[in-house]
């Protein structure tokens, strides 16, 4: 508990997490509002249901990737990681506390992005299909809480492995925003690989673009994909912690 509290003080005693959080929420919600105000939705088109409101959540996710990676790489940058390991020599404890203290705000941001995007769309351009009726609808909106939390864990793991802000952020953003999408372009095997990529899995859990025909025959269901996404994040985090234990601080 004391280690968690120490991490909480660390997180809340600098301003950058607040700016990141604000950006992570304002960017997707703001752009969703813009889309809602311009969209001309015909009664038949609205088969998309509520996930039309979540199309831009990946922007918030990208900011959370940066925020979470920074929370560990900035400690390496400023040398405070040494103070951290000095006061808590059991490194796994220190790093798991940091993971918890970063993942929880990320989940709150996820809630704000999910429900915020949905509410703002609803307020500007309301139509009946946007109501949260089915379990699927709830998964698309409330599911952001889990997706954002797991995203933070994944980014922390990468941060622990790479240690440098520029490197970790570049790897995470290029991967999340470009690589996953481009792999699908590889002929023949591209699709099969893509079906096992972590952020693809996160999107399948949320149910984004489920109406696209190519996405019908998938190896896992939504909850299976969530478990898979979580397993990948946990594996990267474990690798990060192991690396921190082995290497000199």
């Amino acid at each position: 508990m004391s280690v968690l509290n120490a991490e909480r003080i660390k997180l809340l005693s600098t301003r950058s997490p607040w700016w990141c959080a604000l950006l992570a929420i304002a960017l997707p919600v703001g752009l969703t509002a813009l889309i809602a105000s311009q969209a001309q939705i015909q009664p038949g088109d609205a088969g998309n249901g509520v996930y039309i409101t979540q199309m831009l959540s990946s922007l918030g996710r990208a900011v959370v990737l940066v925020m979470a990676a920074l929370s560990i790489t900035s400690e390496y940058r400023f040398g405070t990681i040494r103070s951290t390991f000095q006061v808590v020599p059991h490194r796994a404890t220190a790093l798991l506390a940091k993971t918890a203290v970063t993942a929880i705000p990320a989940m709150l941001i996820g809630a704000a992005v999910g429900f915020g995007s949905w509410a703002v769309f609803q307020a500007i351009n309301s139509f009946p299909e946007l109501a949260l009726d089915t379990a699927q609808d709830w998964r698309a909106v409330a599911g952001q809480v889990l997706v954002f939390g797991i995203t933070a864990v994944l980014a922390l793991g990468v941060g622990m492995l790479i240690r440098q802000t520029a490197g970790a952020v570049a790897v995470l953003l290029v991967y999340a925003l470009l690589v996953e999408g481009l792999i699908g372009l590889i002929p023949k095997i591209g699709d099969d690989i893509q079906h096992w990529l972590p952020f693809f899995a996160a999107d399948r859990f949320l149910g984004l673009q489920d109406d696209i025909p190519q996405l019908r025959d998938l190896p896992l269901g939504p909850w299976g994909y969530l478990a898979y996404f979580a397993a990948v994040a946990a594996a990267v985090l474990a690798a990060g912690i192991l690396s921190a234990q082995r290497r000199d601080a």
Binding site: N5, K10, F78, V87
Partner: peptide, 19 residues
């Protein structure tokens, strides 16, 4: 120099003490 430059001296000592 192993201190976060944007953290106050008191906050720096607070997290160390709490841990």
């Amino acid at each position: 120099k192993w201190v976060h430059p944007n953290r106050s001296a008191r906050a720096h000592l607070q997290w160390l003490a709490r841990s």
